[in-house]
Amino acid sequence: MDFQYLFELLCGGIVKGSIYALIALGYTMVYGIIQLINFAHGEVYMIGAFVAFIVAGVMTLSGYSGLTVLLLAAVVAVIYSAAYGYTLEKIAYRPLRNAPRLSPLISAIGASIFLMNYVQLAQTPDFLPFPELVPEFEFMAPIERYLSSADLVILIVTTLTMAALTVLIKYTRIGKAMRATQQDLVMARLVGINVDRVISATFIIGSVLAAIAGVLIASRTGQINAAIGFVAGIKAFTAAVLGGIGNVPGAVLGGLVLGIAETLGAGYISSAYEDVFAFALLVLILILRPAGLLGKAVKQKV
């Protein structure tokens, strides 16, 4: 058996999976608090990539290059996407807060289709070349076969982001309010938590993570279009369900498992069936462990 090849695939899978995880976190956090699958989440990711594309284009023309551009493009994309996430919740979900559960779900699908078509109209339906912003680091040359410089940046950024998120959820005031709201919404209101604000914050945080993922993946694959949000969204949603929807560590685990399964399947069997492996894995997990890898089966109180 060719271990070198296996290792190569594993590294690729982890890089891919960490991006899935970043997007999946947005799904799972929103679901945890308001039990809504925010189908427009993938579009927020796509918008992040587009904003980064525009910023990067302008900056490259003005003579900047490399990581400075990446950093600035990411910052602008994060701010922009956060505003989108916040507005999306206000317009598409908040008015339906007390409606039957199906209504906000349909509203989410509508918002997703709207945003995708809006970008298509306002920008272009074609693929756009995203500039390569991560330079080839010299020290990466010996292990480039396994991990490119862009991959390294992805791994570092996703790890740092997830660490920051963990600290935020565990120790900050808003993080505690988010956990409290997730565990018991009525009681959260009774201790004086402004639940609307917590929900807004959750959408903003999820959108920030999605925008970061958008910038990272765009600079790695080198091209974007208005439809990338759909595929990435479905994959990340799969990752969130795989790990147990509503469960934050579960989203990270689900993302990694999904990424590795995809690359292994593509590498050993056929890359044409990459997506099939992802969804077959989902079907398998849902049959064997319906609540997901880390999810707990919910007991319905009568």
């Binding site: 956990r179 409290a180 565990q183 018991d184 009525v186 009681m187 009774l190």
Partner: peptide, 13 residues
Amino acid sequence: CQVPEGRHIFPQM
């Protein structure tokens, strides 16, 4: 302040 029926402790905190 209210202590609601069924106590409503945040279970995972």
